[in-house]
Write a protein that binds this DNA or RNA. Structure first.
Lengths: 127, 127
DNA sequence: TCTAGTACATACAAAAATGTAAGTGTAAAC
DNA sequence: GTTTACACTTACATTTTTGTATGTACTAGA
């Protein structure tokens, strides 16, 4: 009944950060402890539903800790666990790379959109 | 008409590796130049369609180079560009982290599946 | 001749991720 | 007393991603 063993560490890491928000969430929580609404603001355009789901998953995976002040109206903060911090640190170089190459990546991204906009040309080879 | 600017380098990086295969593809190509079928084998269970799509995107993004020997039957090899290599290097620490924590992550992943199978129960502990 | 292998493309189906809109209960600010 | 804010949840719709099956043009090997 052994679950899937990864072929390399990268597969394990990818398993934890799948999706387009988790890495960003970890990144921001790595810098400061944040409340739900504050986290949403720094992320830009996540819906509440998606953010709640992602956070729940990160908490379940042991990367993030949820701190509930049990007040009303609610006050909840999120922070990284030790495990989460350790993981997050391994992404420091990625973040720096992104900072250095931001403009280039933005151009790549923009070019991608342009490709999509023009109709993709398709060639009919045979009948 | 400036396209969206990223708020941080991490967003830019995420934009390039979105999906669950690209990071793995970059990782493997970072170690050796590979043919399509060989890459598929090291990745494990990608379908040809998906791999072809991902590779096309990576090539379009300038991270991977496609080398076509123009023979028949076809012989094509894929390798990282300089840009791709540079990016890939920034993930070295992530990979190492994954290697060190592989077992723990495997357990987390397994627990996730079990949760899904049984009815999910929720309990929270205060601060 | 039949099979297997190469590197894909294409039509289609299914699954997963994401988004939208509304609701919940309370309380402080206006 | 109405609005705003908090941290969500739920139902639902849409988008994106992933997978399946098949076809292509060709050749080397059995």
């Amino acid at each position: 009944m052994e679950p899937s063993r990864y072929r390399c560490g990268m597969e394990a890491a990818v398993d934890l950060i799948a999706g387009k928000w988790k890495l960003l969430i970890l990144y921001h929580l790595g810098r400061e402890r944040l409340r739900f609404a504050a986290l949403r603001r720094v992320l830009g355009d996540v819906s509440e539903k998606v953010l709640a789901e992602q956070l729940k998953a990160l908490v379940a995976d042991g990367l993030v800790r949820r701190i509930d002040f049990r007040t009303v109206p609610p006050h909840v903060e999120y922070e990284l666990t030790e495990f989460g911090h350790d993981f997050c640190k391994s992404f420091a170089a990625v973040c720096e790379w992104g900072d250095r190459n931001m403009d280039r990546v933005a151009r790549i991204s923009a070019a991608r959109v342009r490709e999509d906009t023009r109709g993709g040309r398709k060639r009919e080879a045979g009948a």
